[in-house]
Simulated assay, not measured.
Amino acid sequence: MTELLRLDDVACIRGDRLLFEGLSLALNRGEALWLRGPNGAGKSSLIRLAAGLLRPAAGTALRRERVALIDEAAALDAELPLRRALDFWARVDTVDGHSVDRAMDVMALAPLAEVPVAMLSTGQRKRAAMVRVIASGAPIWLLDEPANGMDEAAQARLVAAIARHRANGGAVMLASHFALGVPDLAELDMGALA
């Protein structure tokens, strides 16, 4: 297996609070890691650290490939129609419109292409964020609570997208309060690190 992401002896401090220290892990092609634990255990901080948005207080984080991230913000212009908002990210990620079309089909959002992002429900916004991740073509997916607000059908689409990504050599780090039914999922209990 080819390693896509490695964290060596990392520590994370937010404010005055040490969330975790001495954490080492590797994520290889085809693997998925579920970060679980109570609120405040450091799941989101670890995702942000892995993405390079947060510096470790100690240790090193190495990403060998591009990263796509979902966090609490959809990062889509709320005033634009969904398709135009997604096209902005396609240009940033240097992918063509066909990638966006395919990803919208995967997440069943094509019928909402002309709806302003501001008018989407919470679950639809999460699906839209997932479209952005899928269309990016990034080998490393960092997904922070990606199923929040999703109904069962949308969650099934999310799980299927994760399976396809892994089958194609991608890797996934998933922070969630539940496993989503993703098969062959390694677990890291963030609550045990505190």
Rank of each mutant, 00 (worst) to 15 (best):
G149T: 03
G149M: 07
G149C: 08
G149A: 09
G149E: 06
G149W: 08
M150L: 13
M150K: 14
M150A: 04
D151H: 06
D151E: 12
D151S: 07
E152P: 06
E152C: 10
E152H: 12
A153I: 14
A153F: 05
A153N: 11
A153Q: 13
A154F: 07
Q155C: 15
Q155P: 02
Q155R: 13
Q155H: 08
Q155G: 13
Q155M: 14
Q155F: 04
A156L: 09
A156G: 13
A156T: 14
A156H: 10
A156C: 06
A156Y: 05
R157T: 05
R157M: 15
R157S: 15
L158W: 13
L158M: 14
L158H: 15
L158K: 14
V159S: 04
A160F: 01
A160K: 07
A160H: 04
A160C: 03
A161W: 04
I162T: 07
A163T: 13
A163M: 13
A163L: 08
A163P: 00
R164Q: 15
R164N: 14
R164M: 15
R164T: 15
H165K: 06
H165F: 10
H165Q: 05
H165T: 04
A167P: 09
A167R: 12
N168I: 00
N168T: 01
N168R: 14
N168C: 12
N168K: 14
G169A: 01
G169Y: 10
G170P: 00
G170M: 00
G170Q: 01
A171T: 08
A171R: 01
A171Y: 05
A171C: 03
V172A: 00
V172K: 00
V172R: 00
V172Q: 00
V172Y: 00
V172I: 02
V172T: 01
M173V: 15
L174M: 11
L174G: 04
L174V: 10
L174F: 01
L174T: 04
L174N: 05
A175R: 13
A175L: 02
S176P: 05
H177M: 05
H177Q: 06
H177D: 01
H177P: 00
H177T: 03
F178S: 12
F178P: 02
F178D: 15
A179W: 14
A179P: 15
A179N: 12
A179V: 05
L180I: 09
L180D: 07
L180A: 09
L180Y: 06
G181R: 05
G181L: 08
G181V: 09
G181A: 10
G181H: 08
V182A: 06
V182G: 09
V182Q: 10
P183M: 09
P183S: 12
P183V: 03
P183T: 06
P183E: 13
P183H: 11
P183G: 03
D184M: 07
D184Q: 10
D184P: 07
L185Y: 06
A186S: 13
A186P: 02
A186Q: 14
A186F: 01
A186K: 14
E187D: 08
E187W: 02
L188D: 01
L188E: 00
L188R: 06
D189V: 05
D189F: 10
M190K: 03
M190H: 07
M190V: 05
G191I: 09
G191C: 07
G191Y: 03
G191T: 11
